[in-house]
Design a protein around this nucleic acid. Structure first.
Lengths: 141, 141
DNA sequence: CGTTATGCCTATCGGTTTGATAGGCAATTG
DNA sequence: CAATTGCCTATCAAACCGATAGGCATAACG
């Protein structure tokens, strides 16, 4: 299961992407429309900014904007940034590979084999769907 | 990422499945061979027992055995039992469906749409691979 | 019967993560 | 200068995670 943070991040980004406006979107607007806890959302947006997904502008008429075209921000990238690796075991993670503790032999491990399949499937889906692939429907999860 | 518990559960079950012996396998043997913390493994095996995946026998020459044929114990079932739902969001879980808090409309939610695809793909893999689908290679993750 | 090997129950524990809130500082606009 | 906005720091309770310890119940074996 994804953490609440990740779901909030997705909703916030989708909202920003859909707003389509050139003017940055303030936290208060996102939080009001999507009904997300304002202060908590602040932290998340800061992470998204540090991760290079959004730009922020301070002061009056400040707020957040996507840092790159919506077509270049995939669900996979968002989730990896906020949640961590897509992989179910560290030894099949591409973005954060790590040998499993107490692993006898990676090449012949059957658990690794199936987990690699799962990871590749998941990544194929999440990395190929971007914020631009959204129809008019409303984000709500 | 899976918790350590789930990885341990998988390794223990694979070990039992492979031992192939009719005699139950004691915790101490599993823990020694797979290098898993003994007391911790106890708790996990108890969960597996309560979940109907293994049978236990007390007393001398006691231990654990698979409660059904290895071909009927899938990775999906094991992970769901120890870890929880495969789904990334509650609203696409089949085994533990729950409407997302603050969801506007489930049918049109784009997050739900993609998460459903991911879940279905993951489930297809994990539910169709069983403890019987293991070659001679050694489990190690 | 008693010894021994085993699973089972209960309790505890420190550390980390999770979700969240509060207050004040910094910057920018007008 | 006032208003609005993001940013930084601190704090918090609750849950989760991985693990350990001790003793009780049960069954096999001689």
């Amino acid at each position: 299961m994804l953490t609440q943070r990740s779901r909030y991040a997705l909703r916030a980004l989708i909202f920003i992407a859909r707003s389509g406006s050139i003017a940055p979107v303030p936290i208060s607007v996102i939080s009001a429309d999507q009904k997300l806890p304002r202060k908590f959302l602040e932290i998340i947006l800061l992470d998204l900014k540090n991760g290079g997904l959004v730009e922020s502008y301070r002061g009056k008429s400040g707020g957040y904007r996507l840092a790159k075209p919506a077509s270049q921000i995939s669900f996979g990238e968002i989730i990896r940034l906020i949640e961590g690796p897509l992989a179910l075991v560290p030894c099949v993670s591409v973005s954060a590979y790590q040998r499993c503790a107490d692993c006898f032999e990676e090449t012949t491990c059957v658990i690794r084999k199936i987990m690699l399949t799962v990871r590749d499937n998941t990544a194929a889906i999440l990395d190929n769907t971007t914020l631009a692939d959204l129809s008019i429907e409303r984000a709500a999860a």
